[in-house]
């Protein structure tokens, strides 16, 4: 049974990709208003975990359970999970030629509000959201992510998050590919979005995003498992010392 206080909770999640186990029993409980970070080296399974939770077709959840606001989500399709309030900002957002940013955003918001819902406020909201992220208005009529730079794509991911206003946002390597100015803009967007009733899970290799978006809890993931949990100071230690010491500790602990 889900914890009544948790906004998002998953237990003992196992994920396979192409028949290979990538995530081996990960559990986490996130309360409203919290910011969690999962850190880990490349290949630790942290991106696989977030993709699987969103319903990515290449990442199969073999066992475990996940609850958003007390509702079990693993039997839901990706679009149902989204409408239930889950959001994933992708590490590598896809381009969709022929579909403009504005049309895409309108369709997504319409899907969230219901197909007969009034959308007369869309333009205003959309323009304001673009402006807040310093996205040039010309992007509205460009094809989604088609020819966008890495930083532009990440801003569009945050734009979507700010408009769809999910309860629980998973941000997968949102800081990668950003220069320092773009990192600040994106971080400010994330901080504007965050409030007492939603929550964030930042998935990141480096801690530089965490200088701008302050996590309450930091988890270290290695070999498909969360092996260490701490406060913000853990991120700083990882920044200074890398992941080797956690690996060593983990190897000792498992007797490997």
């Amino acid at each position: 049974m889900p914890d009544q206080k948790a906004l998002f909770e998953f237990n003992d999640i196992h994920v396979e990709v192409d028949g290979k186990q990538i995530v081996s029993g990960v559990s986490l409980k996130i309360l409203p208003g919290e910011i969690h970070a999962i850190m880990g080296p490349n290949g630790s399974g942290k991106s696989s975990l977030s993709n699987a939770l969103m319903g990515h077709p290449d990442y199969a959840i073999m066992s475990g359970e996940a609850f958003l606001d007390g509702r079990s989500i693993l039997s839901m399709s990706a679009d149902e999970r989204s409408r239930a309030g889950l959001y994933l900002a992708f590490q590598y957002p896809l381009a969709i030629p022929g579909v403009t940013v504005a049309n895409f955003m309108r369709a997504a918001l319409q899907a969230h509000r219901g197909k007969d819902a009034d959308m007369s406020d869309f333009r205003k909201l959309f323009k304001a959201a673009m402006k807040a992220l310093l996205i040039d208005p010309s992007f509205a009529t460009r094809y989604l992510n088609d020819g966008f730079s890495g930083g532009e794509k990440k801003r569009i991911e945050i734009l979507q998050m700010s408009m769809l206003n999910p309860k629980m946002a998973l941000l997968d390597e949102t800081d990668s590919g950003l220069d320092i100015d773009a990192l600040k803009i994106v971080s400010e967007g994330i901080n504007r979005f965050h409030n007492d009733s939603n929550a964030l899970l930042l998935v990141t290799h480096y801690q530089r995003l965490l200088n701008y978006v302050k996590p309450h809890h930091v988890h270290v993931m290695i070999h498909g498992r969360i092996v260490k949990t701490g406060g913000p100071e853990l991120a700083l230690k990882l920044e200074e010392l890398g992941y080797d010491w956690v690996e060593a500790e983990y190897a000792q602990g498992t007797g490997a």
């Binding site: 319903g55 077709p57 399709s77 679009d79 989204s82 994933l88 895409f104 369709a107 997504a108």
Partner: peptide, 9 residues
């Protein structure tokens, strides 16, 4: 999947 992850059926 990308579109579905944004709530679109």
């Amino acid at each position: 999947f990308y579109l579905k992850s944004r709530g679109i059926e």
